[in-house]
Amino acid sequence: MRILIVTDAWHPQVNGVVRTLTETRRELVHFGHRVDMITPQDFRTLPCPTYPDIRLALFPYGRVAKTIRDLAPDAIHIATEGPLGLAARRYCLRQGLQFTTAYHTRFPEYIHARIRLPLSLSYAWMRRFHGASAAVMVPTRSVADDLIARGFTNVVLWGRGVDTELFTPGERDRLDESRPPRFVYIGRVAVEKNIEAFLKLDLPGSKWVVGDGPLLARLKAHYPDVHFAGVFPQAELARFYRAADVFVFPSLTDTFGLVLLEAMACGTPVAAYPVAGPRDVVGDSGAGALDDDLRRACLAALAIDREHVRQIAERFSWTSAARQFERHLHPNTQPEPGAADSAALTDDALQ
């Protein structure tokens, strides 16, 4: 099958959406499919307001339309709600083409955190965007339940995986001369990640932040005792995960949190709030501590057996996740889906 994926998030961005699409594309090619991409790399772009590392395509409709016509894909997947996603959606609707979408990111909550736009307005827009798709793929059942409660009617599950060969237990770096225990956060340094909830905690040992983002300079100035390591390529992150005694995930808005799995694959227990993402990935597996009191979660996670944490991470596979994605595609050789088909919530289990 010839599959087209349209995404506003792509390399050189470093985030969970890019990683998910990269791994999914690799698996789909391994299955024997041809996978083409429409990404910002092929367009003139401008920086996203409040987040200049993200580049947004300028006036992409004509080129997007021509690319879809020329490729004539069997199945179209629109991964993001940005300019490229909007252009592809518009073309598909005009031409009567089926497509699927994905809900990777809680944009309503992110926008609200930045400019206080009421959630009701942004969720109304999101319902309209995704309501035209044959299926909107979401990473966990918690997110599916949230969207269904907000009036989404075409939700299916598409899980996530982890590279258990890249992220693996091994020698634990001392991270300079910082004091143990070491509490480590890895990810975007941005307001929606709620990082200050971690940095404000009174914890023994030392705190580390690995990553970059618009809040980095301010947090460095406000928390001089925290070790800010900067940004590293994915291949080098495993040493930070392994060095951590606890991986701290303070976000309240992530739909999944691939970094949770990466930490767990390295044997590092997780401390997080009991919200969507940690609740679905860690839950009651014993691979971490979830608590409304993040300090209490951090201290409890110190006692967790690292070998058990690794065993839980091994349940998650990119191959299984890509097979879910493949099953949810709607090739345009099929008739238009009926209401029952597009509204169904599958029972695909996260693996």
Rank of each mutant, 00 (worst) to 15 (best):
residue 192 E to F: 00
residue 192 E to L: 02
residue 192 E to I: 02
residue 192 E to Q: 11
residue 193 K to W: 04
residue 193 K to M: 08
residue 193 K to F: 03
residue 194 N to G: 13
residue 195 I to S: 09
residue 195 I to V: 13
residue 196 E to D: 14
residue 196 E to C: 08
residue 197 A to P: 01
residue 197 A to Y: 03
residue 198 F to A: 12
residue 200 K to S: 09
residue 201 L to Y: 10
residue 202 D to Y: 01
residue 202 D to I: 01
residue 202 D to E: 14
residue 203 L to I: 05
residue 203 L to W: 08
residue 203 L to M: 10
residue 204 P to C: 07
residue 206 S to F: 01
residue 207 K to F: 08
residue 207 K to P: 02
residue 208 W to V: 13
residue 208 W to L: 13
residue 208 W to K: 01
residue 208 W to R: 04
residue 209 V to T: 05
residue 210 V to M: 06
residue 210 V to L: 07
residue 211 G to L: 05
residue 211 G to H: 06
residue 211 G to V: 06
residue 211 G to R: 07
residue 211 G to N: 05
residue 212 D to E: 15
residue 212 D to L: 10
residue 213 G to E: 10
residue 213 G to K: 11
residue 213 G to M: 07
residue 215 L to D: 14
residue 215 L to K: 13
residue 218 R to K: 14
residue 219 L to C: 03
residue 219 L to G: 02
residue 219 L to W: 09
residue 219 L to Q: 06
residue 220 K to L: 01
residue 220 K to R: 15
residue 220 K to Q: 15
residue 221 A to Y: 00
residue 222 H to G: 09
residue 223 Y to H: 11
residue 224 P to M: 08
residue 225 D to P: 00
residue 225 D to G: 02
residue 225 D to M: 01
residue 225 D to L: 01
residue 226 V to H: 08
residue 227 H to G: 02
